[in-house]
Design a protein around this nucleic acid. Structure first.
Lengths: 132, 132
DNA sequence: GTGAATGCAAAAGCTTTGCACTCGA
DNA sequence: TCGAGTGCAAAGCTTTTGCATTCAC
């Protein structure tokens, strides 16, 4: 008899300087950058960094729930803040801003279409900087 | 004295068989297709149709508010139903389903971050078909 | 007739992937 | 040591664009 034990959950992950730097940078900025921006900014401290590594790690961290992915017009942005909050896409300058939870209330009733496991609200608007 | 009158709004648009077919197809399906699907399905009745034309018209119609754009993981989907409703992305099969307005309530309070002009809620979940 | 829209194909993003090498445990 | 993670470059997708041609008005 053969017993196969499948252990669910993420694979063992080794420490990597690149992934740590990526996570640190993402947590220290509020600009919701894309992969390209992260790559260019990390190049300063990690000159050998490659874009493939950035994408690989972002994908991995997003799957593990360590960071958030924000799907926006034709490109993906990332957020190191995984607390429940929402985003506003400024139609004028393209920036993505945080909209804290207290401004919004969302309630979902039971339905027979799907079991809802989560949701994301992306607002459109004109940010305070652009209004001026 | 020179008077310049700027007329806001969309440019004059000529009728085009391709655009009409695209809009008809989009309004007659509930599957929230992407450009590729629309292209392949219209090829049957418009054999000379090109993918560039599909993209050009989708972009144009979305800008005019005639159709909706749904930004999803790494590709854009479209919806011919522009009435206020929400979407569920099934994490199992990848389908996008409609979630009628009555199941959801969203309220946004005044804030000093941005003037909010609209929003989109994308739910994640497991659809009824996949649950079975 | 005029120029908006098309078809085609090339180019331009963005993202993933194969492979040899490096480095963490 | 050994295999997960990296760097590099090529490939894969999706989307845009330039240009000659077609077609709506």
């Amino acid at each position: 008899m053969i017993t196969v034990i499948i252990i669910a959950g993420r694979d063992v992950m080794r420490y990597s300087r690149q992934r740590e730097a990526l996570h640190n940078l993402l947590c220290s900025t509020k600009t919701h950058p894309d992969a390209e921006w992260l790559y260019l900014n990390l190049k300063k401290s990690l000159p050998n960094l490659s874009l493939g590594t950035v994408y690989r790690n972002l994908k991995q961290m997003a799957e593990n729930g360590e960071i958030l992915e924000i799907s926006c017009k034709n490109s993906t942005h990332y957020d190191g803040d995984i607390s429940r909050h929402y985003h506003i896409f400024c139609e004028n300058c393209g920036k993505i801003l945080d909209l804290p939870r207290e401004y919004i209330s969302v309630s979902v009733e039971k339905n027979n279409i799907a079991d809802i496991t989560g949701y994301d609200v992306l607002f459109q608007g004109i940010c305070f900087d652009c209004k001026k």
